[in-house]
Simulated scan of single mutants.
Amino acid sequence: MKCDLNFLCSCIAALLIISGCNHSESADTVDEPSPVTPVQVTTVQDSSLAESVELSAVSAYLEKSFVKANINGYIQSTQAVMGKQVGSHQLLFSLITKEAKSIGNSVNKLDAGFKFSGISNIRADQAGTIVQVNHQKGDYVQDGEALATISNRNSLVFLLDLPYEYNRLINQNKTVDILLPDGTKMNGTVSGTMPSVDSVAQTQRYILKVSAGKNIPEGLIAKVRLTKVNHAQAQVLPKSAVLANVTEDEFWVMKLINDSTAVKVKVKKGIESQQTIEVLEPRFSKNDRIITSGNYGIADTAKVKIQY
Rank of each mutant, 00 (worst) to 15 (best):
T193K: 09
A124D: 07
T203K: 05
L180G: 01
S211T: 09
G188T: 03
R123S: 10
D143W: 00
S151P: 00
P163R: 04
V176G: 00
S151Y: 09
L180P: 06
V141Y: 09
N173M: 14
I119E: 09
P163Q: 08
F158N: 01
A148I: 04
E165S: 11
S211F: 06
S151T: 09
K137Q: 12
P195R: 01
Q136A: 12
N152T: 01
G183L: 06
F158D: 01
Y166A: 05
N167E: 13
L180W: 01
Q126L: 14
R123H: 14
K209C: 04
T193D: 13
N167T: 11
R123L: 03
Q132T: 06
H135T: 06
N121G: 02
I130M: 04
R123A: 06
N154P: 03
L147N: 07
E165Y: 10
R168A: 14
D198Q: 05
G192V: 06
Q202H: 13
Q126C: 08
A201V: 05
P181D: 14
L159Y: 10
Q172E: 14
G144C: 01
A212I: 09
D139V: 05
N121D: 12
L169W: 02
V131R: 10
R168V: 06
D177C: 00
D182K: 12
N167W: 03
G144K: 05
I130P: 04
I122D: 04
V176P: 00
